[in-house]
Design a protein around this nucleic acid. Structure first.
Length: 557
RNA sequence: GCGCCCGUAGCUCAGCUGGAUAGAGCGUUGGUUUCCGGAACCAAAGGCCGGGGGUUCGAAUCCCUUCGGGCGCACCA
């Protein structure tokens, strides 16, 4: 639809001035019109003419060719051309849906990535919410999205936790695991990890033992050993972690389709890397490294001196494994930005021998979550806020404010607070502000939706026999104008994989509606029919947007 | 030391593929209610867009530089 107007402008410019340009229409402030372009300014130098002259000449031409749809064309400021659409043309724009730019594409979205044997912390909550929204965006654009996560069920951290667990059990006694109550399991393992990590750093003997445990865990996978006492403890605890993840995702409404444990990709990665020694990778000080310096980055170890694959080699295995499983056209990996340069190097290495997969992969880095006034959280030190604690303090803030418990409100509050800022920087989470029903919050939007639904419910019982008018009053027009931006905003969010655009837009939309609603009676008014249609469309857009964000849009609150 | 990211109102943030008087929310001050959900609306105050230089008709936006903060740089993930 918008393309139609752009093409008309391009044709007019060609006819008048004999030059071909790519016209891009933007959304100006409402006072200026519905669409605007600065082509006249851009052409000014090339044509040696005053931009306003160019604009005026174009306006004369366009008033003829666009007479059906455009009610007013003005030249303003230094030479902007502003188009105001006729009311029917504007309402026609409401039929435009987000572009299905990913139709037919298979996409793997990897996010969340909690590690078994470690705590599920606030950062996991954040990255899960972000990943979900991004996956939803790609789905909205028509993509077939597979949501997966990846977690370290092997590696040094497992060695640390296992070391402490066995110490706590007073030996390799898997039967004693039964003494740990199901509700305590996650916390118990998280404590064990901290214990193991401290021992690793402070105690040489423990460090040696942990190193040995790390190898034993790899060996146990290599042997597919489920029987030894050590193996029984390992598999039981790993299962505890997965059960905790399942419960966490169920609570959030996240649907992770497949868990990739590191143990499934370690061998593959190791093998792939070894095959490329002397080509892509080289041996250095007994380890296998990728020399990123030659490519403007830095050198990274892919296989340790002990012959174990590092995170880097496992990533290679994972990227290939995901391709074997899904044959994706595109792969998106959402992680914290501390992994940004690591990922750059890994993709650079893969580019050398499987270029297609490297190019199909997009890494989306985001910042850390900080609780207001808090410090960065580290699971190694144990001074960390768990995902559950964030949910709990938010529930508490909501209870104090509203006097009741409402899980949907709490989740809406957290998700919106996490998603409303542009990805990349750290975010500061303020529970009280997030659950506030005033201002730019999730609950505000949920309430806005409930309120619209309430109007529609009431209208069902009233008569709506008046014919719908085609022209719009000022307040109605502002609302329609804002609603027509929805598809464009979604397209932008999809193109950039940036969910915050949806948040910004939905909030502006709700504000526009509230302004309209404040001054315009709906039920019982002479314009009830046309206004009810607008309320209906508004509620639909609000809901669609909230769905993308993974936030419930309740009919009542 | 090298690399990446980030500095916008008291606080939290939009705006960044250059364009019209730099926008919201919270907080502060004042106002609005016969009536559809006031969890709202209206208004005011509050900004050398970290500093400096450059490119441009035009810079919060691009380039250089400087200061401040975050993160990453070999066998953790």
């Amino acid at each position: 639809m918008i393309e139609h107007y752009e093409v008309c402008l391009e044709e007019a410019i060609f006819k008048l001035f004999g030059v071909s340009v790519d016209v891009e229409l933007t959304r100006p402030e409402e006072q200026f019109g519905d669409y605007a372009t600065n082509v006249a300014l851009q052409l000014s130098k090339q044509l040696g003419k005053n931009p306003r002259e160019i604009g005026e000449a174009l306006a004369v031409k366009l008033r003829e060719t666009l007479a059906d749809n455009v009610s007013d064309i003005t030249i303003a400021g230094p030479g902007f051309i502003n188009l105001k659409l006729s009311d029917p043309a504007l309402r026609e724009l409401l039929k435009v849906e987000p572009t299905k730019s990913l139709a037919g594409k298979t996409i793997v979205a990897e996010y969340s990535d909690p590690n078994p044997f470690k705590i599920l912390h606030a950062g996991h909550l954040y990255t899960t919410v972000v990943g979900d929204a991004i996956a939803n965006l790609m789905e909205t654009a028509g993509g077939k999205v597979h949501r997966v996560n990846y977690g370290g069920d092997v590696g040094l951290h497992v060695g640390k936790t296992m070391w402490a667990i066995i110490k706590r059990l007073d030996g390799e006694t898997p039967e004693k695991l039964q003494n740990i109550a199901p509700d305590d399991r996650s916390a118990w393992m998280a404590e064990a990890y901290v214990e193991g990590n401290n021992a690793y750093e402070d105690n040489e003997q423990a460090k040696a033992e942990i190193t040995e445990f790390n190898k034993r865990v790899y060996q146990l996978h290599a042997d597919n050993n489920h029987d030894s006492l050590f193996a029984q403890i390992y598999w039981t605890c790993r299962q505890w972690s997965y059960e905790a993840f399942d419960a966490f995702y169920a609570r959030l409404g996240t649907k992770i389709e497949h868990y990739y444990p590191e143990s499934e990709v370690a061998d593959k990665g190791l093998q792939l890397v070894k095959e490329q020694i002397g080509k892509v990778f080289e041996e250095s000080e007994g380890a296998v490294v990728f020399n990123g310096k030659a490519h403007g980055t830095h050198t990274r170890v892919f296989v340790s001196r002990q012959g174990l694959p590092t995170y880097e080699a496992k990533e290679v295995g994972l990227i290939v494994k995901k391709y074997e499983d899904y044959h994706y056209d595109r792969s998106v990996i959402v992680t914290a930005n501390e992994q940004e340069q690591y990922m750059t190097v890994v993709l650079q290495a893969i580019e050398q021998f499987i270029p297609d997969l490297a190019r199909a992969t997009t890494h989306i880095p985001h910042g850390m979550v900080r609780l207001s006034g808090g410090v960065k959280m580290s699971s190694r030190k144990g001074n960390i806020v768990s995902a559950t604690e964030v949910l709990d303090i938010t529930a508490k803030a909501n209870r104090e404010l509203s006097g009741q418990d409402n899980e949907q409100t709490v989740l809406g509050a957290i998700k919106y607070a996490f998603l409303k800022s542009r990805l990349g920087s750290d975010i500061i989470y303020e529970p009280k502000e997030s659950v506030s029903l005033e201002g730019n919050s999730g609950p505000y939007l949920q309430y806005a939706h409930a309120r619209a639904q309430s109007i529609l419910r009431k209208a069902d019982s009233s008569k709506t026999s008046e014919p719908s008018a085609s022209s719009l009053e000022a307040g109605e027009r502002s609302l329609v104008r804002k609603m027509t931006e929805y598809a464009e905003v979604v397209d932008k969010a999809v193109a950039e994989l940036m969910p915050h655009h949806i948040c910004t837009y939905l909030y502006e939309l709700a504000q526009t509606f509230n302004r309209f609603y404040e001054h315009s009676r709906v039920i019982g008014d002479a314009r009830q029919t046309v206004r009810l249609i607008l309320v209906q469309q508004y509620a639909e857009i609000l809901q669609a947007g909230l769905v993308i964000l993974g936030i419930a849009a309740p009919d009542k609150m």
